[in-house]
Structure formats: C-alpha cells, structure tokens
Nucleic acid binder design. Sequence first.
DNA 1: AGTTGTCAAGCTAGT
DNA 2: ACTAGCTTGACAACT
Length: 292
Amino acid sequence: MKIGYPCINRSIGCTANSTFRLANYSETNLLEKVSNNLDCLIKILKYNLDNNLLFFRISSDLIPFASHQICKFNWQDYFKERFREIGDFIIENEIRISMHPDQFVLINSNKEDVIKRSIEDLKWHCKVLDLMRLNKTAKVQIHVGGVYGDKNSAIEKFIDSYTKLPHFIKKRLVIENDDKSYSLKDCLSVSKKTGAPVVFDSFHHSCLNNGESASEAIKLVKNTWKKQDGIPMTDYSSQAPNERAGKHAPHIDIENFSKYIRETRESDFDIMLEIKDKEKSALKAIALIKNS
DNA sequence: AGTTGTCAAGCTAGT
DNA sequence: ACTAGCTTGACAACT
C-alpha cells in the first residue's frame, strides 16, 4: 500500500503546476513555466521519497495549454531528456503515478467537439507518462461524464468513444465514481464493457452509493485491475465539518481514516488523499499506517 | 507588498 | 433562458 497526495506540496516552496493566462501565451513563457514545473516536480518527488510517500498525482498544469490549439511548440522533444530523468527516478524508487484531467474532459459528451478536445487532452497526459517511460501502472483517471438526461445512452456514448481511443490512451485510462451522477455500480458496469479499471473514491461513494460497504467496494474494484495495471488506486477524503455535503476536508480526520483502514485491511491498494493540506495530512496517514 | 478579481475548457441543479 | 457552484491555486491587475 502506497500513500500519496495530489499535485501540490506546501512545504518545499515551489510548485509543479505554475501556469499563465492564455492572453499571455508565448513560447518563452511556456518554456519558462514548464522548465520550472519539471524542476519542482523532481524536488517534490525527492521530498516524497524521503518521507515514504510513494504515490503522487502529477498536475494537469504541468504543461500549460498543452492540448490547446495555440500551442504549436514541440515540448515533447524539447524536454525529452528531462522527462526521461524524472521517469528514471520514478521507476528506480517504485513511485506510483497518476494524473487526473479536470471536469472539462468528457468523452461521452453529446457535442463531438467536446469529445475531440477531450481526447486531445488525454493524449498529452498519456504522452507525458510515455515520455517518462512509465509502465501501465501509471494511470490517467477521469469520471464517466455527463448524464444528458438519459444515463443509459450516456454510458453507451462513453463506451463508444472509449472503444475508438488509441491504445496509448486506453492502456492508462481509468474511471472514477463521482458524487452526483455515476456511482461505483455504474462505473463497474462501464468497466465490464470497456475493460477500464475503476478508481474507488471513498468520499464520493459516501455521497452516492448502492449500499456497498468500503470493504465490499474495494473487493469489487479489485477485479477490474489486471496484473499489469498494478494494485487498485483509490481516492480518500472526508466531509469538511459544517460545510456543504461533498466538500473535501481541510485536514485529515484521523479517526475516520483509521476506521477506513481497519475496515479494508484485507485488501492491498494505493491511497490518494484528496485533502486540502496535502502532504501534511499524508504524513499523518503514513504515521498511522506504520503504527497499526 | 499586499489584496482582490479572474482564469480555456462543461455539467448539473436551481431560479 | 440563465447562472452559481463545482474546486482551486495562482496569475495579473489593482491598491
């Protein structure tokens, strides 16, 4: 079991998700930001290694506007060696990597243009992981998408788009249950048709479910991860106290986390902590696991 | 230097 | 028909 946190480290004084406005797009700006982001990424990974945090989500801002039509620069070639070095570090130290394109990436949209741009976005995410030479255990996770008033046909649309994806995307794409539209059960049925592994998000599951306990849920998703995909990736968070239902907690609720670990102890899986204070909570989680 | 408004992209629910 | 909220940090323009 590996523990990690997404995208940002708040202790080491740099960010690997620095970006700029579209209005200020220039090759110079892009080069500067990407270069800075890659430098910081390796620093974060080193910090993580020192602290036994072996799961990390790389920010979608790593290459700003990578899939936007404005970007004509061949960053793949220009930063080839840097990607390779970072990849070597990841592989040597057996760090698990994920990426999570944001809410705009929808392969089941009823607008062809949205699907097209989403695929372009998935392409660059997968390209980065390929340039790092990471194996199939490095994943790119998305939600199933919109419902458009008819979930069955929206799922059909997802399956149809998925089937047409190039192999280098398919080998990395995994789907995550969300808190409003697509439950774990929905994701499992999509997985059955597509073969895409399912990322279990425990917090979303607490918002939207069909009565499955956490330990049942983990066992169910486990079957969707083949040997080459690695052990299941999962997302964990808890409800922010006194806030709207579905809002992520600012700090880890260690009681809640401890209970989750106890309930699911018979399975091995990696945990991404989607908590606002990032590595701070991840360190607490690591300490808890060590002592349990 | 510190503060505040704004940012490429879509969907859903609520008015 | 329209908009706020999602979830969010960081850029950029303003004090």
